[in-house]
Design a protein around this nucleic acid. Structure first.
Lengths: 245, 245
DNA sequence: CGTTGCATTGAGTGTTGTCAAGCTCTGTGG
DNA sequence: CCACAGAGCTTGACAACACTCAATGCAACG
């Protein structure tokens, strides 16, 4: 079954579409049949671990976390179902970050070496992998812009809006959905945005008071999506999206 | 002539070494023979431009800049001689950032379409390109950690130390060099680090007063490299480096 | 029912930003 | 040779956004 929706690659080079679609399918074929399961708070990969395989997230969210010796921590990226996780490890000798389950997770796995071989044998697989890397890079660029320039309100608005957009792209939310499950604590959100939990909480309150969004029990409701989107830095990521699946 | 030094890929998967070396050479063969020249402050690519080719920086530095409608700007990455610039454009439909010459620049170019074809035809080229993307991603991860967690002093120290390391890796500086040309104004440094120029200046003064570094006329001198490195967040990028060349 | 993790709020502090002025240096034109 | 303009650097005084510390409430869970 091809899980790739027709417009998943929209806004990217159309001439790559067929190669990407096929490459994606080929990668799925390489995956080991039995998915691995992790509970929330478990680590899919440990900081320092060489990490022998690549994951395709099936259910649940996970985060790449860098912990500093003094206790600070930064969540670098959040991965959603459909994303390929751990590609970087195919090329680098060390795993410098932990990969952490934000919720219960199921994921398919493939040996790094197998995927590397497939990449050499099949140009479509190579294209698909490069595409995933480029897409992550695009999101990281946006993230750098926001961490560098946005204040707390803008950061939070941007996060809420862009996660929603990714979920929609990944067909995990209907086009017009306004609420979604956000399986992150305020502490984790703070680590993601480079703020303190206390301040995240205050901004949440403000958004609530101004009728922009509602929070509670792992759910967000973006009451006024337009104003939130305007609050978020006008960073070009209306097409922020999860990896195709 | 193979400009690839033997240990350029050190700390990365050794089994990739030959593929990377050969892929790198093949990419060089695709480059158009006559280099393009840009003056400092000129744009190699304009925000919005579709950007038809990929650059290999030969001399000079350039920066990827995102400008916001309200006047804020963020320098997302800095590229040094040897780096491949504009790979992302091979996959994405729009150029959302400008690429800006920080100094006078000469660069070789290759048509995007040609490089894409080579990527499909030659697995080593694909490996080399994926490697470059992974390497950029690694640096972006470090950047996110610093923008999220580091204070002004840590950010500046990290920048000085890591640029030095990249120059050394690219063989543009001897292993033990302490001073180097930094072709960026304090305003540009501020935009790179997400600080204000005024504050950058204050931190520079502090570093000067404490005998950690000296600044002047486009030159930095890292007087006390050890202490600077300790000041910088202990982010694992002692192997921060420019792309191989 | 304690305990534990998470959310919430207040009061006070501090790092960084804002505004504004003056400085140095360089190049240019009178 | 001097006057001037412009770009970049430097500094001070003040304001603000975000952080720290601390306490409380509130679930979920053993």
């Amino acid at each position: 079954m091809n899980r790739l929706a027709s417009d998943t690659y929209a806004l990217h080079r159309p001439e790559l579409h067929t190669a990407l679609t096929r490459g994606d399918r080929e990668i799925d074929k390489l995956m080991q049949p039995n998915p691995r399961r992790f509970r929330a708070r478990q680590e899919l990969a440990v900081q320092g671990d060489p990490l022998a395989h690549v994951f395709r997230l099936h259910e649940g969210w996970c985060a790449r976390v860098r912990s500093l010796p003094d206790g600070r921590a930064q969540i670098i990226t959040v991965s959603l179902p459909g994303d390929l996780v751990g590609l970087k490890g195919m090329f680098l000798a060390e795993q410098v970050d932990a990969i952490y389950a934000l919720s219960d997770v199921t994921a398919l796995t493939v040996e790094q070496s197998r995927l590397r071989e497939a990449m050499r044998a099949d140009p479509d697989v190579a294209t698909r992998i490069s595409f995933q890397l480029v897409d992550e890079e695009r999101r990281l660029h946006n993230r750098v812009v926001r961490l560098g320039q946005a204040d707390a309100g803008e950061r939070i608005a941007a996060m809420l809006v862009s996660l929603r957009a990714r979920l929609v792209r990944a067909k995990l939310l209907p086009q017009d959905a306004r609420a979604y499950r956000l399986p992150m604590t305020q502490v984790q959100i703070a680590d993601f945005l480079g703020l303190t939990p206390v301040h995240v909480n205050r901004v949440f309150r403000r958004l609530r008071e101004e009728g922009l969004a509602k929070f509670g029990s792992g759910l967000v409701d973006l009451l006024d999506l337009d104003r939130l989107a305007r609050l978020a830095l006008p960073v070009q990521d209306s097409f922020e999206r999860a990896a195709p699946r």
